[in-house]
C-alpha cells in the first residue's frame, strides 16, 4: 500500500447505527472506500476476499473470537488483509487472543471516530496500533515468553502425545468428554484419562487453563 492509494475498508457490525455512521465518517475521507456487513458469515468472507479489501474493521471482539476458525481461514486466503477491532474489552487476555488471531489494530470504544480512522490507516500501512496499556502488556508477555515458561514445564508440554495434542483443539471448543469420545471413537473413560494426563503435563488444574498453556506455547488453536 503506498501513499495515494485508496484504502478499501470492510466494516462488520451488528449495530446498524454504528455501521452507517462509521461508513459516512469514512466516506468523508478521500482515501477510504467502504463496504459493510452485519456479521462474519461465509458470504461476508467471500465478499471480503473478492473485493480486494485492505482492512476489516469489526466492532465486536466476541464476534471475532466466536468465529476464530473463519478468521484464520480468511487470513490464510487473504494474507495481506489487516484486522482492526473496535471494542469495550480492556481485558489483557482477550486482547492477547485477538492478537493471536492476527488483529493488528485494537481500538477501545472510548476512542474517538478520528482515532478509529487513524487505526484503519495505520493497519493499511501494515503497522499495528493498540492502547498503550495493552501494548505494555504485550511487550511484557513476549518478555515473559522469552524467559520461558518453566523449562521443565515446556519439556513436559512438548511431550504431549499426538493423541493428547489432538484433544487440545476439542477442549478449546468446549466439548465435553462425552462429545470428544464420540468424535474420536473412544470411550468416555479413555478421554477422561487423556484429559487427566494433559492437565498433569501442562501443570494446570482445569482444561481451559491447559488450552491457554498450549496456545501460549504456540500450538495452533
Amino acid at each position: 500500500m503506498t501513499i495515494g492509494d485508496t484504502i478499501n475498508v470492510y466494516i462488520i457490525s451488528r449495530n446498524r447505527l454504528l455501521r452507517e455512521s462509521l461508513a459516512r465518517i469514512f466516506k468523508k475521507q478521500n482515501d477510504i472506500s467502504i463496504l459493510t456487513g452485519d456479521a462474519l458469515t461465509s458470504a461476508t468472507l467471500q465478499e471480503i476476499c473478492d473485493s480486494g479489501v485492505d482492512v476489516v474493521l469489526i466492532d465486536s471482539i466476541n464476534a471475532l473470537l466466536e468465529e476464530a476458525e473463519k478468521v484464520r481461514e480468511l487470513r490464510r486466503t487473504c494474507p495481506n488483509l489487516n484486522l482492526v477491532v473496535v471494542c469495550m474489552e480492556e481485558n489483557e487476555e482477550t486482547f492477547l487472543r485477538a492478537v493471536q488471531l492476527g488483529v493488528t489494530g485494537y481500538v477501545l470504544k472510548e476512542a474517538s471516530a478520528m482515532d478509529v480512522t487513524a487505526a484503519v490507516r495505520t493497519a493499511a500501512r501494515g503497522e499495528a496500533s493498540c492502547p498503550p496499556r495493552l501494548c505494555h502488556y504485550l511487550i511484557e508477555f513476549v518478555a515473559r515468553q522469552s524467559d520461558g515458561l518453566p523449562t521443565a514445564r515446556m519439556r513436559e508440554l512438548m511431550n504431549l502425545t499426538r493423541r493428547e495434542q489432538l484433544l487440545i483443539p476439542l477442549l478449546a471448543r468446549g466439548l465435553t468428554n462425552k462429545e470428544i469420545a464420540e468424535k474420536l471413537n473412544l470411550s468416555e473413560q479413555t478421554v477422561k484419562n487423556y484429559v487427566h494426563r494433559i492437565l498433569r503435563k501442562t501443570g494446570v488444574q482445569d482444561r481451559l487453563a491447559a488450552v491457554e498453556v498450549c496456545r501460549t506455547a504456540g500450538l495452533n488453536l
Binding site: S21, I25, V86, K109, E110, M114
Partner: peptide, 14 residues
C-alpha cells in the same frame, strides 16, 4: 452517551 465513539457516531448522525 458513552462510550466516546458512540457519542461521535450520534453527533455525526445529527
Amino acid at each position: 452517551n458513552r462510550p466516546r465513539l458512540m457519542r461521535d457516531i450520534v453527533l455525526a448522525t445529527i
